[in-house]
Design a protein around this nucleic acid. Structure first.
Lengths: 242, 242
DNA sequence: CAGTATCCGATGCGATACTG
DNA sequence: CAGTATCGCATCGGATACTG
């Protein structure tokens, strides 16, 4: 794909920034330095070949640095100062998307893992329960096309938290049961959470105090409609919140 | 090209905004409502078919309105409120490009007409000369690939100004002679204008007072290095300046 | 794990011709 | 002028296999 053949800086920036996948790579790198497979995991539909290609191109253009890892093979990818200057662009794209793309979520967009990574990232560390606390998410009405599992576990273990795709074996404190699309839209603030809970589109099962605990963790009810919702890796969320 | 299959608002926005040509179309529409051929003229490398396609898609997504023209055939294209919200993104891309793409201008990027449209647009109307005033630009070292002409005329006629590709026949007040790439980089603020004029990379010919007049019009010497240089159609420049 | 090399198929898009 | 319809090919990028 050749360039636009215009010296206009908007065009020159678009040649780089508006290439397919590039904004999403930069979105990921906004979460801080990361490795190849971390990126690959968050961009599952992108082939390794293409990801490498894009990262190389971004390095060539001074947007990304590729450093040798100290231990083992592979590299660490991070934004250069020039790359950091894309952060406000990514954030504005996020805001625009929240305001104007609510109705064009298609089944293929839904992804329990991506969703729960966001959930995991949005929960402020200070609010973690003291001891171990396990929330199991059960998603109904998964898109037919997906191979995703129905059940996931978020394990709070004091300063850390883990997202598990397999039963970690610990006793479950609360089960959250919801349609995947309902929970996604609710989590994004696109539909009323309280409403969905009220009509049991989203249901909580467990001891009442544990359920309240989870509702508080998810901050389900005090989410303003037009809040600046930063979507991205946990570190990016942290940075934006500060 | 299918979507990214992610509900993340950055991804959903990228599906629309980061498609090939789309940022440039929006850049143009930031100059206010316009018509098909105006767009086509500013995006010469884009085919009519593709331009139509993109405009239709942007309409479908609520970014552009397509209205019948009152007289004659064709439509008027303009940004919806949602589309207007892309303006800050375009402006940030412009700023990023000015800071980080100065070294990657290639010969094919250079275009006398695009350049002089920008020149014409950047000159504030209040500074126009009182009577008719004609500046002829002569570009040397045009890229071999181009079919562009060497000579262009900007005719100031009181409240209006015209950019001519053919000799308008009026007597010429000042001739500006420069390498196309030198003038482009200087105009963008990428290289020092005063320096280039001093070593006659850019030369002015005409009566001394008229030459001074042109230098003032072009605001060649009081251009700060990191100024917020808005590149785009004249109306966009006007709006950004206000 | 962290990529690289190669092949080949889908499709995006330019070119051309046509219409009101 | 302001587009629409059709065709064909270049190329982007996915799939697969391979390597340190």
């Amino acid at each position: 794909m050749p360039g636009y053949s215009q010296f206009c800086p908007v065009a020159k920036t678009a040649e780089l920034f508006a290439e397919r996948w590039t904004p999403l790579i930069i979105r990921e790198l906004c979460g801080g330095p990361t490795q190849f497979n971390m990126l690959k995991r968050r961009l599952p539909l992108m082939s390794k070949t293409l990801l490498t290609q894009r990262l190389r191109e971004l390095e060539r253009r001074g947007v990304v640095t590729i450093a040798e890892k100290e231990s083992g093979a592979g590299h660490v990818y991070s934004l250069t100062p020039a790359g950091e200057e894309f952060r406000p662009l990514i954030e504005m794209m996020s805001v625009w998307g929240q305001r104007h793309t609510q109705n064009i979520l298609v089944p293929e967009d839904l992804d329990p893992i991506f969703l729960l990574q966001s959930v995991q990232g949005q929960i402020p560390r200070p609010t973690y329960p003291a001891g171990r606390f396990v929330v199991c998410f059960v998603f109904r009405n998964l898109p037919k096309s997906t191979v995703a599992a129905k059940r996931y576990w978020i394990v709070f273990a004091h300063p850390n938290t883990d997202l598990c795709m397999k039963d970690p074996g610990y006793p479950i404190d609360v089960e959250v049961i919801a349609d995947l699309d309902t929970f996604t839209r609710a989590w994004m603030g696109y539909i009323g959470l309280a409403d969905e809970v009220a009509r049991r589109g989203i249901a909580f099962e467990g001891p009442p105090d544990a359920v309240e605990r989870v509702k508080a963790l998810l901050a389900l009810f005090d989410r303003p409609r037009e809040r600046r919702f930063i979507f991205g890796p946990p570190e990016m969320v942290d940075a934006a919140r500060a």
